[in-house]
């Protein structure tokens, strides 16, 4: 039969709303030993899927982001505060997401965006923590990340971050499950190749939370990690686990240089 022999990434360029240029290809950061060039997952998708990201009116992820704008301005919890009452306009977070995740200097804990949002909800607002992968949480994470759209990811991997980064790297190269496949087996050794109907990308997270057409919602970084590890017939780690925080830092650092692309659209 005729086989859809896909090769590597395509040559398309991503400009959102005709104005925000997205860096979808960059020289790999120095810490990457086996890859010269890094690519956004957008470069591996079909033209139809790619098109959904060109204009925010066509981007199905923006509905959840719009709901998050409401939530951002809504008072909730015992302290009578909203995000806006402390932080003002959401664009005050411009640039912030590009350096996430990072270690909190006071606690020494590696914080991903979900941790920050829930800390503000529980400690500042007196509101309930949101579920990790729920629409409330992922909409808010997307809204904050959106304020950095276009900016190159630039997470720190040294200093206090170093031990977490090492842990994440070890997880990335571990062959889990009965299929004995590591993240690297699929996303480093085989990006550009087809695994059954799937065109393998580098598994970058610069576009997260990502609207996944298959699940018809914004999905979290940890939900994606879970799915990929589950598919190796392995016992996964939990969303919000320290293992996934460390892996998030590590995978994010493999995208240092690519633009924040949130909310990306994927198949």
């Amino acid at each position: 039969g005729t086989l859809p022999l896909a090769a590597g990434p395509d040559d398309d360029q991503l400009v959102i709303n005709g104005e925000t240029e997205i860096i979808t290809e960059a020289a790999a950061p120095a810490h990457m030993e086996y890859v010269d060039t890094i690519y956004s997952g957008w470069r591996f998708r079909t033209d139809e899927t790619q098109a959904l990201e060109l204009d925010d009116f066509d981007n199905p992820g923006m509905l959840t982001v719009d709901a998050a704008i409401e939530a951002y301005n809504t008072v909730e919890g015992s302290a009578g505060e909203s995000c806006a009452s402390c932080h003002g306009d959401v664009d005050s977070f411009a640039g912030f997401a590009a350096t996430m995740p990072k270690v909190n200097e006071d606690t020494g804990k590696l914080m991903v965006m979900e941790d920050i949002v829930n800390t503000c909800r529980t400690e500042q607002m007196g509101a309930e923590a949101w579920k990790w992968s729920g629409d409330d949480m992922q909409g808010m994470v997307a809204l904050i990340n959106l304020q950095s759209r276009g900016e190159p990811v630039n997470v720190a991997i040294d200093g206090a971050a170093a031990p977490f980064w090492e842990q994440g790297k070890e997880i990335y190269y571990t062959r889990y499950g009965q299929l004995e496949l590591s993240c690297a087996n699929c996303h480093e050794d085989n990006y550009g190749n087809m695994i059954r109907a799937d065109h393998l990308s580098q598994g970058q997270i610069n576009g997260f939370p990502t609207y996944r057409l298959k699940q018809a919602k914004l999905i979290s970084v940890h939900n994606r990690f879970r799915g990929c590890i589950r598919d190796t017939r392995a016992e996964t780690f939990a969303e919000g686990s320290d293992e996934f925080r460390a892996l998030e830092l590590y995978v994010r650092s493999r995208g240092n240089g690519l633009s924040v692309e949130t909310p990306a659209v994927r198949q």
Binding site: R175, G177, R230, D231, R233, A234, E235
Partner: peptide, 17 residues
Amino acid sequence: FTRPGNAYTGKAAEGDL
């Protein structure tokens, strides 16, 4: 295997694989 699962459930394998 490292962290063998119960087929594609994402849960730990129970007993022998």
